[in-house]
Write a protein that binds this DNA or RNA. Sequence first.
DNA 1: CATGAATGAGAATTCATTCAT
DNA 2: CATGAATGAATTCTCATTCAT
Lengths: 208, 208, 208, 208
Amino acid sequence: MARPPNTDERRAQIVAGLMRVMAERGYERASISSIAEAAGLSSGLVHYHFKSKLDVLVALVDHLAALLEARFSEGISRSQPTPQARLKAFLEAHVALGRGADPAAVACWVAIGAEAVRQKQVQVVYARVVERRLDTLQALLRDVLVEQGRSTLLCRAHAAALLSAMDGMFQLSVAVPDVLPRGFASRAVMDMAQGLLVSTPSSGREHS
Amino acid sequence: MARPPNTDERRAQIVAGLMRVMAERGYERASISSIAEAAGLSSGLVHYHFKSKLDVLVALVDHLAALLEARFSEGISRSQPTPQARLKAFLEAHVALGRGADPAAVACWVAIGAEAVRQKQVQVVYARVVERRLDTLQALLRDVLVEQGRSTLLCRAHAAALLSAMDGMFQLSVAVPDVLPRGFASRAVMDMAQGLLVSTPSSGREHS
Amino acid sequence: MARPPNTDERRAQIVAGLMRVMAERGYERASISSIAEAAGLSSGLVHYHFKSKLDVLVALVDHLAALLEARFSEGISRSQPTPQARLKAFLEAHVALGRGADPAAVACWVAIGAEAVRQKQVQVVYARVVERRLDTLQALLRDVLVEQGRSTLLCRAHAAALLSAMDGMFQLSVAVPDVLPRGFASRAVMDMAQGLLVSTPSSGREHS
Amino acid sequence: MARPPNTDERRAQIVAGLMRVMAERGYERASISSIAEAAGLSSGLVHYHFKSKLDVLVALVDHLAALLEARFSEGISRSQPTPQARLKAFLEAHVALGRGADPAAVACWVAIGAEAVRQKQVQVVYARVVERRLDTLQALLRDVLVEQGRSTLLCRAHAAALLSAMDGMFQLSVAVPDVLPRGFASRAVMDMAQGLLVSTPSSGREHS
DNA sequence: CATGAATGAGAATTCATTCAT
DNA sequence: CATGAATGAATTCTCATTCAT
C-alpha cells in the first residue's frame, strides 16, 4: 500500500539537474533552486534526497565517472583485440567526448576538475576516477610496450601524460573553442602516444 | 600639494591578494574582504581601485600572462639558436612552472581557465593569452618542421595539442598531485612533441 | 501534503511595510531590512517574495492605484447623476485624500511621483495611473461641457490642469503643511474647475 | 601674496554640479564624487567647501530660489502696471519654467520638493521659498481683488491653490511628460486664476 | 515523500566622510 | 586650497539549509 520508494529516480533527476546547470554556470553559481528547477522538482526535495549541495556534486562525479567508464569499455570491447587497436579505441573514445558526446558532460567534467582543486570531498572522488583511467590507460600502454619488446618502466608516466593531454583538450575546447583548430585532437593524441611509445627503450629481457 | 597617486602599487597589491586567496579557494570563494585581508588593506579600498571583483580577476590574468610571457621568452633567448633547442627550451620553461615556479601562479592559472568557461570578460583575456602561446609554439614547431623538410600544414594543430597537454598537466598536478608520478611532465612533453613531428609527412618541396 | 502558498498575504504585508516606511523616509531610505521590520518579517523573506526592492515599489504603486480607483468610483457612484454633481464628487474624493484618508498613502503617492522621475519601471506604472485618472476626469468634464453646450476641445487640457493642481496640493501639504492655509483645497479646486469650464467657448453646434 | 579666496566660485561650481546630477538621478543617488566630477573638481574639495552633502543641497535650494525670484520679479517689472497684468506676468513667468527655461532646474525643483518631505533642513529652506512665492502671489491677487471690489479674505487660499497647481504641473511634466497635452499649462493657469477670482464675493465695503 | 516558506549568514558594492600629502 | 587615497558602515541581494504543513 505504501508507495514504492523512488529515491533513486529522484536522485538521478537531481544529479541531471546539477549537470545541466553546472555546465553553464559552474558549481558555485548553480543554486539549489536552479538545480531543482532544471530537474523539474521543488527545491525542498533536493535536501530531502541529499544531505548537502556538495553531496549532489559528489553524486554527479560518480555519475560522470560511470558514463566515461561505460564509454571506454564499450570502445575497447568493440575493437580488435590487438593491443595497439585497443589503445587506439580507448583514446578515441576519450577524445570523442570533445566531439560528439554530451557537451554538458564535458563542460561539467572540466568544472569538476576545477572544483577538485579546493573541495576535499570532490578531490577524493575525482582522484579515484583519474586513478582508474590512469590504470586502464597504463595497462593498455603496457600491453603495447610488451608486444614491442620495450621497457614498461615509464608506462605510468606515459599514461599520465596522455591523460593530461586529453583533459587539457577538454578544458581548452570548453574555455576557448574558437581559438583551437577544428578536430585537431583525435589525430594529435595518437601521434603523441606514438611519440611516447617509440621513445621507450627496449626492455632488458629482449636483449637476451 | 596634492597627494601623489599610488594606484599602481595598490592595484598590484590587490591583484597579489587575489592570487593568494584564489590559489587556495578559487575565484568564487575569494571574497573581497578576504582579498583585502590578504593584501593588508581595507575592503573598501578594493572597490576604490577596481570597479568590480571581476575587474581584479582580469587584472590578475593580465599579470599572469606577463609572468608567463617573461618566463617563456627568457627560456627561449637563453637557449641555443637551433630550432630544436628553442622548442625544447619553450616546452621546458612551460612545464617548469609546474615544478619550481610559483605554485600559486599555477593554481591560479588553472582556476582562471575554469573561470574562462563562464565569464565572458575572463574568456576574452584568457583567449588572448592562449592564442599568444599558441602562436609562439606554432612558430617554433614550424621552424623545426621546415628544417626537417616536413610539411607545416599541421603545425597549429600540433601546437594546440602540446598546449593542451601542458595545461592538462597543470590542472591534474594541482587537482590530484598524489595520483601522478613525480616529474613525469618534462620528458613526456618532449616525447609527445617528437611524436607529433615525426608523424608529419615531408613537404612537397622536398620532392623536387 | 504540501505547504499551502501564502505568497499573496506576504506580498501584501511587505507592500504595507514599504508604505509605512516610505511615507516617512522616502524610497531610497526605506531599506529592505526596515521594510521587513515594519512588516514583522525577516529581511530574507522580502527577496523571497519580490525579485528586487524596486519590485516592491511597483507593487505598492499598483496597490495605491487600486485604492485611489476605489475611492473615486465610490465617490462618483454615490453622487447624483448630473454631470456637475459627478464632477464635484470626483474632485472632492480626490482632495479628501489630503484630509481624512490615509496620510501615509498620500505621502507615499508623493514619493512615488518623485521616484517616477528617475525609475523607468515606476514611471510606467505611475504614468498608467495618471492616464487613467486623466481619462476619468476628462470624461466628467466633457459631460459638463456638452451639457452646457460648450466646446470639448480643451477638456483634456483642463483635466491635466486639475490633476496637476490636486497632485500639487498633495505635494505641498505633505512637504510644508504649516505654510498652507487649512482646508483651502476643496473649495479652490471647485472654483478652478469652474474657471476652466466658463472660459470654454460654446461649441459650433450651438450656433445652429 | 596669498591667493585671493575663490570659495564663492567653488561653491557655485559644486552647487551647479549637484544640480546637474540631481536633475537626472535625484539627491540620494547623486554621490559626492559624481557631483565633483560634474563640477570638474576633485571629490575631496566638496567637503572642504561644504560641511556635508546636505549642505550642498541647502545651497542649491537657495540658488534655485534666487533664480526663481529673479525670474518672477523680472516678469512682473516688465509688465504693465495694472494688477491684472502683473498677476498674469507672474503666472506666466512661473509656468514658463516648464517650457523654455532650464529643464534641469525644474527637475531639481521637483526633486527638492520630494526631499523636503523628509529632510528637516531642506524642508526649512524649501518652506521659506514657498512662503515667499505665496506672499508674492497673494499680494498680486489681493490687488486684483481690491480693484474688482471683492473680498480679500480668501486670497491666501487662492494663492496656495495656484501655487499648488503650478508645482503640480512641474511635477507631472517632469515625471510623465508624454501623458500630458502639450502646452496646456499656460492658459489653464490663467483660467483657473480667473475662476478663483470671480468666485470671490464682493467685499462688504463695496456695498456701502 | 513533497512543497515552498522562512531564516540568517554572507556576498559585492556604494558612499559620505576623513585625512595624509 | 587641493588632491585623491582610505575607511567602515550600510545596502541590496543570494543562497544553503531548515522546517511547518
